[in-house]
Amino acid sequence: MIIGTLGIFLLSACSKSAIISPEEASIQPETKTEGVVSAQAVPVGTVIYTSNGYQLTLTNNDPNFSETVRQKIVDIFFTKYPQLLTRFNPGVTKSIKYVIDPNYNGVAYTSGTTVTYSAAWFQNNPQDVDVATHEIMHIIQAYTGGTPGWLTEGIADLVRYRYGVNNAAAGWSLPAYSSSQHYTNAYRVTARFLAWLENRVNASIVTNLNTALRNKTYTANTWVTLTGKTVDQLWADYAANPAL
């Protein structure tokens, strides 16, 4: 819990929680129930951050979780999530959860309104904080059943490309076009195709595709409705001149 307005809070090595603002979150904790909190690692436990009607609950289960990474992924929620909500899904929840899991061997995954991150991934890739940008888009998407996985992941990586804050430092970028690719490859391959479509065909196509997917009105004909061409015809145009 917060004591006054100096960013001081009590957080044991177990799981007591505190409610703080993003501004206070940038201040190093000064008091702990047992000793002094390291400036380099985040205590194990749960903290709730609130600002302007948005709430992020972060549960850290890794005693070695980086304070720098924590600050960056918290900042991504409070700066990018409102932008994505406004553009893609104004009715989506403003309250989400992050979980830092030392037993998860992947990178990150989203289930409902909870994003679980691999502690090991962040330890080995501390610059790759825009994993959070990709994952919070999945909460914004809120697609339910029957949506093409390749398009879901492609849109999330397109969002990482457009809204990411640290992609260059993380060594993350969209791949150059290759004849071996296909729009159904998902993730960055599909994201680059979508970026090309936004730049060269229809600036609102990703917004409109997202709406169709959320409303369960997406079909193969959606591409024709939005652009006058099938997705295969659009891919052929892209392959002929793939420069963004």
Rank of each mutant, 00 (worst) to 15 (best):
Y98R: 06
Y98S: 08
V99A: 01
I100E: 09
I100G: 05
D101A: 01
P102D: 00
G106F: 07
V107H: 02
A108S: 14
T110L: 04
G112L: 06
T116K: 12
T116Y: 09
S118K: 01
A119K: 00
N124F: 02
P126M: 08
Q127N: 14
D128V: 00
V129H: 07
A132E: 09
A132R: 01
T133P: 06
H134W: 02
H134A: 10
I139L: 04
I140R: 09
I140L: 13
Q141G: 10
A142I: 00
Y143V: 11
T144M: 08
T144W: 05
G146K: 03
T147E: 14
T147W: 00
P148S: 10
G149C: 00
W150A: 12
D157M: 12
G164L: 12
A168R: 00
A169W: 01
A170N: 13
G171I: 01
G171H: 00
S173A: 15
L174V: 04
L174S: 10
L174I: 02
P175I: 02
P175C: 04
S178L: 08
Q181N: 13
T184F: 11
Y187G: 05
T190S: 15
A191W: 03
A191S: 03
A191Q: 02
R192T: 09
F193C: 11
F193D: 08
A195G: 13
A195R: 12
A195L: 15
W196N: 05
R200D: 03
R200F: 06
V201Q: 13
N202L: 10
N208C: 05
N208M: 05
L209D: 11
T211Q: 14
A212G: 09
L213S: 02
L213E: 13
R214Q: 15
K216D: 14
K216Y: 08
T217Q: 12
T219Q: 06
T219K: 09
A220T: 11
N221K: 06
T222M: 01
W223L: 01
T225N: 10
G228V: 04
K229C: 01
K229H: 02
